[in-house]
Amino acid sequence: MKQIFRLLILFTVFGILPIMLWSQNIMNDTLTLNAKQKAVVAIAALTAKGDLPALKSSLSQGLESGLTVNQIKEVLIHIYAYAGFPRSIRGLQTFMTILDERKANGIVDIVGIDASPINEDSSKYNRGKQVLENLTGVTDNLSKTGYAAFAPTIEKFLKEHLFADIFERDILSYSERELATISVLSSIGEVEPMLYSHLNICLNVGLKPGQLHQFVGIINQIIGANESIVAQRVLDEVLKSKN
């Protein structure tokens, strides 16, 4: 009798557990981006692509979604690290035009908070190194390989500027910054290794597979099929590596 009882317990536990895991996976795959996140994707992608007429509409939609003026400015500033100053500045100039038009129409947009002061007790390099470890969940190895070994200067710039000066600013969350990053990388093309890395980071900072599939759909809609096909392929590779 005891043996039957144990078997029943085992059957219950191991029968229900796969169902629970399956349900969790389904939930992860059906989670969607909220309106603000969708706006971040569209603004970043269109700015990187240089499609300013479409960007004007997305900037207005971003404000209507609840993003503050400072949050949108921060997205546009963030983009320069991946697409360069010209694209970023044209995006900011386009945003200035939108704000002037909305003000002329009596629309008062919320400016929002500015970035908090950064604790500079540690060096920029060490702060950037810590931010990168937070993003990836991987401890930085002191031995450098690949481009970091070939050109140590750019590795220093990445730590001190990209991950310290930019990612440390708290106007945007890590997940919002990563959405902006993968949007830029998908739009400019030919940077699949970087896209792969940042899609991995997206999962590490809390974005779910379903949300990343939806991101690819937005790229398809506003940038084009070719870019979305590449993004989907890289995303599939990332998700496959997690199984």
Rank of each mutant, 00 (worst) to 15 (best):
A115H: 11
F163Y: 15
D109L: 10
H161K: 07
L172R: 10
I89S: 09
R87I: 09
G91D: 14
V111I: 14
A148V: 01
R127Y: 02
Y82V: 03
F167C: 08
T153I: 05
V184W: 12
F150C: 02
F163E: 02
N119T: 01
N105M: 12
K124I: 01
G106K: 04
S88R: 12
R127S: 03
L142Y: 02
T145A: 03
G112S: 08
S183V: 09
S183T: 09
H161Q: 10
V138D: 10
N134M: 04
T181P: 05
S88T: 14
R90P: 04
E101R: 11
A164D: 15
S187C: 12
P86R: 10
V184E: 13
G137I: 05
T181G: 06
I113L: 08
K159L: 15
S123D: 05
E155P: 00
R177G: 03
L92W: 11
P86E: 14
L92S: 14
T136W: 07
D109Y: 08
Y174P: 03
K144Q: 08
D170E: 06
L185N: 02
N126C: 00
H161Y: 14
K129N: 05
V131F: 00
F157D: 03
R127C: 04
T136H: 06
R169D: 09
E160R: 11
N119F: 00
G91S: 12
L158C: 00
E120N: 09
Q130M: 07
I154Y: 12
F85H: 02
L92Y: 13
F85N: 03
S123F: 05
S88M: 15
L158Q: 07
I182A: 10
R169V: 13
K156A: 04
L132Q: 05
K103P: 01
